[in-house]
Amino acid sequence: MDKIVNQKAWFLVLPVFAVVAFSAILPLMTVVNYSMQDTFGNNQFFWNGVGWFKELLDPSTDLGGRFLASLGRNLLFSAIILAIEVPLGIVVALSMPREGWTVAVCLVILALPLLIPWNVVGTIWQIFGRPDIGLLGYTLNSLGFDYNYVSNEFDAWATVIVMDVWHWTSLVALLCYAGLKSIPDAYYQAAQIDGASRWAVFKAIQLPKMNRVLLIAVLLRFMDSFMIYTEPFVVTGGGPGNSTTFVSIELVKIALGQFDLGKAAALSLVYNLIILIVCWVFYTVMTNVGTERPQKKGAA
């Protein structure tokens, strides 16, 4: 569908622009302002130029070390949960019942974790994993595993990852399910006539139909895991030590805990910049996938 060029459309977009600009541009200006200054309290500020940014990117300083370490942990975390959630989500979507009342039941249960407030998700897993009162912790310990997410780094990581898989795999599954639902039956009948194997059907029909929703899923999952704060904060508080301190947790510690405005602002800007770049890459890829589709259809 060709769109008409009409500059008056700006009037339609203006309210959105005003609301988001109020919440995005004004605060961002404050952040930029803070990032160039140092404060010793009492609302006295001193010009610090790019000092904070230099410190931030230099691993030998305290700030830089903390930032780069938390960034590394966060990237590792995002990579692990994407590697688990995307295949698992596809498998779950393929396993959904086809019709009948079970479909509605499955959909409702799948969506349930997505609507639980994030701190309650943390609370649920905090309780569930405790060796003394939680089913998971108690069972693992009685089976002879020495599981304790409070004191053991590996257990803390495992808990946070399993929690995220529990919380968000449904999103991937629901997206893929929506993609699968849009495949007309004729495709499957054609595949059957050709004697295509189960794997061939998946590769040639289902995966291409899902690639657009999968992109949305990967984008959302990457972004949300990259800015994860509440759930690990409730469960582990960033510990033991700093082992589950992700970028957002570090940032909140510096900004609201220590009130180190300059450092926090510099960290915020770099953090935001990384997200903006990744978002732009995904957006470009996604719009390209969108424009390729109709052409293919036209050719066929």
């Binding site: 952040v31 957002s248 940032l251 609201l256 953090y271 997200i275 903006l276 978002c279 732009w280």
Partner: peptide
Amino acid sequence: LSNRMAPAAVFALP
């Protein structure tokens, strides 16, 4: 869209 992706932690203080 990029604002949907912006981390809440960045905006908390401002």
